[in-house]
């Protein structure tokens, strides 16, 4: 056995490892600068709207706000759709990881849809509920603060995830 035999074995092992690992992989969608920009813009519009109703509303003046609600809900729904229609990479790798996680009964499988979709859908549902409440009864300042905090929480989730994709 020659002196450099162990080195040859190590090199062969590394080569096989490299082939096994195959190459660079992608487990999450690509960063979408346009989507992120859309999120920051609609976030500013949302905060302006919440500021304008922070003292509460009267159902008698709902018609003045109706267009604001529909415009914001429409923009959020469009962004959720934009996030959800991105190609999802690494489905095979993700399936392998999920198969392993499922075998451990840990119930923590990775979903193929980006989590920002669920967060944006939540913002849309919060605004819809707020709009309905405003139209039917008007809103107290406390209710406005509660709806605003819901939107802030969900928007933070969407913005953080989309920004994190810029790797």
């Amino acid at each position: 056995m020659s002196a450099n035999q162990p080195m040859k074995r190590a090199s062969t092992l590394c080569l096989f490892l490299a082939i096994l690992v195959s190459s660079c992989t992608q487990l999450a969608p690509r960063y979408d600068a346009e989507l992120y920009s859309g999120l920051t813009e609609v976030n500013a519009e949302l905060m302006q709207f919440f500021s304008s109703v922070s003292h509460g509303t009267n159902k008698g003046s709902y018609s003045e706000r109706s267009q604001n609600y529909h415009s914001l809900i429409g923009k959020i729904d469009a962004l959720a759709m934009q996030s959800n229609t991105r190609p999802v990479p690494g489905k095979v790798t993700l399936r392998k990881i999920n198969n392993y996680l499922d075998s451990t009964d840990s119930n923590i499988s990775f979903e193929s849809a980006p989590p920002s979709v669920a967060s944006l859908e939540k913002i849309s549902s919060s605004l819809n509920r707020m709009r309905k409440e405003d139209e039917d009864k008007g809103l107290r300042a406390t209710a406005v603060a509660l709806f605003k905090n819901e939107v802030v929480i969900s928007m933070d989730q969407a913005l953080t995830y989309e920004s994190f994709l810029n790797r």
């Binding site: 690992v21 999450a28 990775f110 989590p115 994709l165």
Partner: peptide
């Protein structure tokens, strides 16, 4: 919202795993 928070954490983790990989 608590569920979406957990989903977002899981999403962030997937990105980190990808980067480490």
């Amino acid at each position: 919202m608590a569920l979406n928070f957990a989903k977002t954490l899981r999403g962030l983790l997937a990105v980190t795993i990808e980067k480490v990989w």
